[in-house]
Design a protein around this nucleic acid. Structure first.
Lengths: 153, 153
DNA sequence: ACTGAAACTGCAGCGTC
DNA sequence: GACGCTGCAGTTTCAGT
């Protein structure tokens, strides 16, 4: 894990890409007062350094009918292989993210589901497939995430 | 919140964009066996419907020296305005996301910090700025998130 | 299908170490 | 003098109508 050194222009480019990753090089170049080639090379370099890991689309899952989010805290036996938990949860389409935790609980699973019945089934599936000793589920009322930039266009 | 109806081609396009949002229309068109114009129309429609909310860059924050992630569970007085909590947390650069919760705890804050001292300061700041009755912080050992597609190129 | 725009690549100049 | 970064110009590919 080499720490990458970024100057202020790099950060500016990252910020612009965070707002809209489909910006053209010319657009970015104009805003940071560089040529398009220079911008491209900086982006390529940040990709090579591992600072930029990819470009992705942001989807409003609620619009697709997956309107409920929840966090499930998991506790399991000391003998349980932590990696197995992650593997299992990862394979479920409802799983948005999995965090293994130092302390109590042992893991935190971020779920996205269609409705309450679906949530129930999903939690049951997690409990069934692992040596889970207890779960506690937090239903999300509202969410704010940093990665939402101003709507492009 | 109108539920949008997407066919399998739309989902395929979304999946391709999730892997790499900077794909060209021509590339996508070839993979879904459509013309570039047809692909563009579908993407524009999904944007208009609010299914696609934007395009963003994925950054490895650990490479930038922000190597520690944590969740802080917040509990506060019944008189507290939930919105204020979100506002406060949102303004902190360390805050990755804020979830308000139905039940106990009242909120969950996803933090990203440079080191433990930084985490300490960040939590103190949250406690200080709100009518927080208690906090419990979970240090993340490992994370898996769905939004990571295969590395492009 | 067509036209203007954007991305990519090679080359040369400039400053830093 | 090697390295890193830049601008410019030519070529190819892409976006938008």
């Amino acid at each position: 894990m080499a720490a990458a050194r970024l100057d202020s222009t790099d950060h500016e480019i990252l910020s612009l890409l965070r707002e809209d990753a489909r910006r053209t090089l010319a657009d970015i170049a104009e805003r940071v007062t560089l040529s398009t080639a220079a911008v491209k090379r900086r982006i390529d370099r940040m990709r090579d350094e591992g600072v930029i890991t990819g470009f992705t689309v942001q989807v409003d899952h609620a619009r697709l009918g997956w309107g409920i989010e929840a966090f499930t805290e998991l506790r399991f036996l000391g003998t349980t292989n932590v990696h197995d938990i992650v593997q299992t949860a990862t394979r479920m389409p409802e799983t948005q993210a999995v965090f293994t935790i130092a302390g109590d609980p042992d893991a935190l699973v971020w779920l996205r589901v269609r409705d309450m019945a679906h949530l129930q089934r999903t939690i049951d599936e997690i409990r069934r497939s692992q040596r889970v000793t207890s779960t506690k589920t937090l239903i999300v009322l509202e969410r704010w995430t940093r990665d939402r930039g101003p709507r492009p266009r």
